[in-house]
Design a protein around this nucleic acid. Structure first.
Length: 595
RNA sequence: GCCGGGGUAGCUCAGUGGUAGAGCAAACGGCUCAUAAUCGUUAGGCCGAGGGUUCGAUCCCCUCCCCCGGCACCA
């Protein structure tokens, strides 16, 4: 029976280009998961978009003398291109500045407000004495009252680790313009998280399938919930949809509140764009649907606590909770990854310790990068990207094991038969190998389903090595000289194994798997091109959405039946071997960009 | 400081209350269809340190050290 699966992927922030660490944390795992479930025949809805509101975007805009919207436009385009180029198969990758997203966000806000889950409270905020702009804590700098460190941030001191309040800093100044901040009262709306404490505890307690770090971390937080402000003193964001506020330009909904709502609004947009406006309900108001969220570990709290509370509070209210009458679905799993480091150090765009997605893809194939991030990514603990490891994994594993198996099998078969050979009687060994490889659909699939992507890919590679061993032991290139039928049988077995493994590789390596599919003589699509489509909303605002015609892809996660006699294409190497020289080149490039 | 996660072979990482695992790197051997790729064999570890529970601990408990993240106005 096919399932409805929502693949909810963290929204990349549109203040600049995204680096390899972002792709490693949420992009590759979510895409493997989504592609696998599509092959399984499940109804997958994979959504995300660029997160475009908030202070950092306004700062970049100020620096460049442009509007926040112009900055958001630029990086929405750039990030969309990156994600498409690395093959992330979103059903809808949109943005948070759409009319639809504003509507959905405002509906959730007002519904929570009228249900009594929002509290109005006055707090002290810091404002720049020069521009009058609000200063988030981390943009205030001063001397630490605890240890005397001169460059403590408003939220915490990097020297002694103390938690600080900006008002306690000695000699505070704006990190942005150097002016001393002014502290004044400001009124905001707070999400009453304590109201959900009991429900959250009960719900998280039941989620025994969550990764232990996510579950215990979240359970712990639930013990001490405080109301959390969900509006900000800023002019760049979703307007507050209450009569007294809707025309004010100085207060907006907090970027994190609207960002998580993106999962829902993007689903609604997807349904609208394809002309079936209620289709999103099959995921969001279907108690059988599974919602799986992908993100880095720094985002857990926003999903397990805040987003869950918003959904619990909204329930079946508002403009979107009606319809089928069941409340909006809570997350089924939260697959948070750890962090990728770069040559042993934290990624830092500001310090130039970084490799941007667009740069790596301009020099290397997407599947090489995907292979590395899938097999060596930060799935359970922080992991390190080094150029030496990248070259080694590519050359000694991807090329040498899988690429070579494909190449030697196809070369032998193509040269001697030009087509899938008709096999004679199969030996026990033949059948044993076929059975072992076919077993992979179960073991690899189960691993992917529970988020063990490294283990899954390792198993495919192990099976590939098994087929390499079979070829070395059976030596079809020799046998064929004396017994053409037996030689054909061996190659038939190897081809069938390659065909199966191709399907298992598709979620990990979609580009090369499609090319292999064609080399094997198929004319259909198992991993086709992704597409950008333009949509125009009310007020003639047009935006670009990354999507794909996944309904037309026909791969199935099951043993394939490679037709005997199917003509093969002349084989081409699937992957490029990388010259060891690139290690030194890339390190030099990085050194140059450091500052 | 508090909370959570991690520390296992040279490297990257799995894993389990009962004699420590994989891939790569290393050494040796085989093969030469294949992108000098492949296949086989061997070697390699006080499982962060110390204590405890247990017949038995790498695993469970306690203490400590180191790394990462969170700690509620960065996203």
């Amino acid at each position: 029976m096919s399932e409805h699966i929502l693949v909810a992927v963290a929204w990349p922030y549109a203040s600049g280009p995204r680096h390899l660490g972002h792709i490693a944390g949420f992009g590759i795992p979510s895409d493997i998961f989504a592609r696998y479930h599509r092959l399984k025949g499940n109804h997958v809805l994979m959504v995300s978009g660029t997160d475009e509101h908030g202070t950092p975007v306004t700062l970049v805009a100020d620096r460049e003398g442009l509007s926040p919207a112009a900055i958001a436009d630029r990086y929405n385009r750039q990030i969309g291109d990156d994600l498409s180029n690395i093959g992330l198969s979103y059903d809808t990758f949109t943005r948070t500045t759409t009319h639809n997203h504003y509507q959905v966000t405002q509906d959730l806000f007002t519904t929570l407000y009228y249900k009594g889950y929002l509290l109005k409270q006055t707090t002290q905020g810091a404002f720049s004495s020069k521009t009058g702009r609000a200063l988030p804590d981390r943009y205030i700098e001063g001397t630490c009252p605890v240890c005397g460190f001169g460059e403590a941030r408003g939220d915490q001191c990097d020297n002694c680790g103390s938690q600080l309040d900006p008002i306690d800093l000695i000699n505070p100044r704006s990190k942005i313009d150097g002016s001393p901040p002014v502290f004044q009262d400001t009124e905001h709306f707070f999400l009453n998280l304590p109201a959900f404490a009991e429900q959250l505890t009960e719900w998280i307690g039941r989620q025994e399938h969550w990764r232990p770090n996510v579950r215990s971390f979240s359970l712990n937080l639930v013990q001490e919930l405080k109301p959390r402000p969900i509006t900000r003193d800023i002019d760049w964001g979703v307007p507050i949809p209450l009569p007294a506020y809707v025309d004010r330009t100085d207060k907006r909904i907090y970027v994190w509140f609207d960002a998580v709502i993106g999962y829902l609004s993007a689903s609604i947009e997807w349904a609208h764009n394809r002309g079936t406006p209620d289709a999103w309900r099959d995921w969001w108001q279907n108690p059988q649907a599974r919602h799986v969220y992908f993100m880095g570990k720094d985002n857990i709290v926003f999903h397990s606590i805040i987003w869950a509370s918003i959904l619990m509070g909204y329930g079946n209210g508002g403009s979107y909770g009606g319809g089928s009458g069941t409340p909006l679905q809570l997350p089924h799993n939260i697959l948070s990854s750890e962090f990728l480091t770069m040559e042993g150090r934290k990624f830092s765009s500001s310090r130039g310790i970084v490799i941007y997605v667009k740069d790596v893809l301009s020099r290397y194939d997407a599947d090489s990068v995907r292979y590395f991030l899938a097999i060596a990514g930060p799935e359970n603990q922080d992991s390190d990207f080094t150029w030496a490891e990248f070259v080694r994994r590519n050359n000694d594993e991807l090329v040498a094991n899988w690429g070579n198996l494909v190449n030697r099998t196809l070369t032998n078969a193509y040269r001697n038969f030009g087509a899938v050979p008709q096999p004679g009687p199969l030996t026990e060994r033949d059948q044993q190998l076929l059975a072992e490889v076919e077993q992979g659909f179960a073991t690899v699939g189960d691993a992917i389903d529970v988020g063990r992507f490294k283990a899954a890919l390792t198993e495919v590679m192990r099976l590939s090595a098994q087929v390499n061993a079979y070829l070395s032991e059976q030596e079809p290139w020799k046998v064929i000289k004396t017994d053409r039928e037996r030689g054909g049988s061996i190659l038939f077995i190897a081809l069938r194994c390659v065909d199966h493994l191709k399907m298992m590789m598709t979620p990990f390596l979609p580009f090369s798997s499609q090319r292999l599919h064609e080399m094997l003589g198929y004319t259909t699509t198992i991993a086709g091109p992704l597409l950008f489509r333009e949509y125009t909303e009310e007020r003639e605002h047009t935006h670009r959405v990354l999507t794909g015609d996944y309904d037309t892809w026909d791969g199935r996660w099951a043993p394939t039946s490679l037709p005997v006699g199917q003509a093969l294409q002349a084989p081409q190497p699937l992957f490029k071997k990388l010259d060891e020289q690139i290690i030194a080149e890339e390190l030099a490039r990085m050194e140059q960009s450091e500052h």
